[in-house]
């Protein structure tokens, strides 16, 4: 079966700093993979290399058999098929929630205004924000903004959504509403690559957890196995720290 996403030997350096030193993995349709690891180990860079927001120095990325990293690929067309959810939302601040969701279908997929508005409304309802369609980003809470940004990604019917620490900029009490939307997406069969330290999320929906450190994948496996009996000492150490930080209670809560 053809894979939705294939990443082959991705390298990326900023000046002398080698951020990614050969990352490879594949994702099947409907997979949810969670990338964890200390900060500064290239997790966000990896996501940005996938849709070439930061072009990798070496290596290839394929989306449904089409090579994104090929110099002649139509990058805008490919990016349109890959949703991206940012840590700090990056909603378009001059547009209402509805327009934030409808602008890309209109401007990128040339959808009619009315049709795009209808689609946007459906997506907003999917994330529980139908009543906030006319609100501007600055009038929404962080959790609501992030849900709008998920709706914005969904409106493009993406083959894959990349999540870059989607809950890290949120107040603790707002994290739950965003995770709930993401959990539902995963259950609905969306293909998702998530950089996050939300262990509860990883445990309940991830097919695989990838532990990255210093630009390489140290260990990967199903969450039950990786969390319960990590093979690498570094993984064990890191998981221990994370659990201490986030606390057992939160995990159970999710």
């Amino acid at each position: 079966m053809a894979l939705t996403l294939v990443i082959e030997d991705i390298h990326k350096a900023y000046g002398n700093l080698e951020v990614l030193k050969g990352i490879s993995f594949g994702m099947q349709k409907g997979d949810t993979k969670v990338v964890i690891g200390p900060s500064g180990t290239g997790k966000s860079t990896l996501l940005r290399c996938i849709n070439r927001l930061s072009p990798p120095d070496k290596g290839q990325v394929w989306l449904e058999g089409e090579e994104i990293t090929h110099s002649k690929s139509n990058i805008n067309q490919l990016r349109a098929k890959i949703g991206f959810v940012f840590q700090d939302f990056n909603l378009f601040s001059h547009l209402t929630a509805l327009k934030n969701v409808s602008i890309a279908p209109m401007k990128v997929m040339r959808m009619k205004k009315k049709e795009a508005a209808k689609l946007a409304m459906e997506e907003l309802e999917k994330v529980g924000l139908g009543d906030k369609a006319d609100a501007y980003p600055a009038q929404l809470s962080g959790g609501q903004q992030q849900r709008v940004s998920i709706a914005r990604a969904l409106a493009m019917s993406p083959k894959l959504i990349l999540f870059d620490e989607p809950t890290s900029a949120l107040d603790p009490e707002l994290i739950g509403e965003v995770l709930e939307v993401m959990i539902n997406l995963a259950k609905d069969g969306m293909t998702m690559l998530v950089v996050s330290h939300e262990m509860g999320f990883a445990r309940s929906v991830a097919d695989e957890v990838i532990f990255m450190e210093q630009g390489v994948i140290v260990e990967q496996g199903p969450p039950q196995q990786l969390f319960a009996s990590p093979k690498q000492p570094r993984t064990r150490e890191f998981l221990h720290k994370i659990t201490e930080l986030y606390g057992e209670e939160r995990e159970k809560g999710n």
């Binding site: 849709n51 927001l53 805008n76 067309q77 490919l78 990016r79 991206f84 940012f86 990056n90 890309a104």
Partner: peptide, 19 residues
């Protein structure tokens, strides 16, 4: 981030600048 988000949605540079 506004530009990054626009590009990530598949807008070209000029379209992102305009819209």
């Amino acid at each position: 981030g506004q530009m990054t988000a626009a590009r990530a949605l598949g807008m070209g540079k000029l379209k992102a600048i305009r819209c």
